[in-house]
Simulated assay, not measured.
Amino acid sequence: MSMMSPLNMLSRFAILLVALFLALPMLALAAEEDYTDAYRRLVDQRSPSVVPVKYVITVAAGGQEQRNEDRTQGVLVAADGLVLVSARAVSFDLGSLNRQAPSTGGAMVANSSDFRVRLPGSDEWRTADLVTRDTELGLAWLRVRDASGQPFVDFERLSQPAPGRVFYTLLRTSDEWGAVPLVRPGMILGETRVPRSSLLVDGMPGLAFDAEGRPMGYVDLDLAAMSRSQGRGLGLDMADMVMHMLPARRVAAATRLASALPVVRRDDEAE
């Protein structure tokens, strides 16, 4: 079987994301509950730190190369413009989504560059440099050039994640929808120790908070595992279609290390 083209791999990646959000039921909120206070608190305290991130993603394989602009959500985690994003926004092994691709065809990895961030209260897209990426944790950090005094999420007071707890993820819409903040609720559904310790959740990817605005953890997708699960039978068993939460204490420790690292700019980007 011939190797899937970069275009088809990107298409499969997008389809998998759409299928995930259609398959995962969002948290059913009790009719008698009122989340107005939590919403206002989170928007007031945390939404200024949620920033849009743009980048160019390049896929090269089989003599083909494709470049596309993409977008993700980031969170300011230091006043100097340090931004926390998912590691998938920096690099992603597309071959892990294609179980039938021949191993002799070479790795198909999507790499990103030309990161830009729009800081709070600004219409300007500012250049950001990659600081570091932690593949084990699934996190990456960018630093916006010449940024200071930015509102940011600190990790001084954390919330302990546990099965049954509700959490909230903050997002920001595109300009088409006014770049307004959204608060999406989620729930920790369970936990596992196979193949590694992980909290299993239903919600939206990103930095998660409790109702008081304290960081609880980072929610993300294991796309490779979901792709493998889709390849079994008719895919009627939806139990594995969950996200994972990394506890905030681990996000905090990794962010402290990242904040102390210098940025090494590419020669063609150096000022």
Rank of each mutant, 00 (worst) to 15 (best):
T127K: 09
G138P: 13
E191C: 09
G138E: 05
V144N: 03
V194F: 14
E124H: 15
G190S: 15
D146S: 11
A211G: 12
V180Y: 11
E176S: 13
G186E: 00
V201L: 08
D175H: 12
V144F: 00
S148G: 11
T127G: 09
D146H: 04
T135Q: 15
L119R: 14
W125V: 09
R118C: 06
D175W: 08
S198P: 01
R133G: 00
T192R: 06
E156H: 09
E136N: 12
S148E: 15
Q150F: 12
T192A: 12
E176I: 11
V131F: 00
V131K: 04
P185A: 01
R133H: 06
L207V: 12
R157A: 12
R118Y: 10
V201G: 02
R143P: 01
M204V: 12
G203P: 01
D202A: 15
P205K: 00
I188T: 06
V201S: 09
D123H: 14
Q160G: 03
V153H: 00
V194Q: 15
F155I: 12
S159T: 04
Q160Y: 09
L200Y: 06
A162W: 10
G121T: 13
R193S: 13
P151S: 07
V117F: 11
G178Q: 08
Q150P: 15
G178D: 11
I188C: 01
V183E: 10
T132E: 04
L170P: 13
L119F: 09
A140L: 04
R143Y: 00
P161W: 01
A179I: 04
D129R: 13
S122L: 07
R157S: 14
T127V: 12
L158C: 10
F167H: 04
D210C: 11
W125H: 00
T127E: 13
L171G: 10
M187W: 05
V166Q: 12
D154T: 03
Y168S: 09
L130M: 13
D129E: 14
E156M: 07
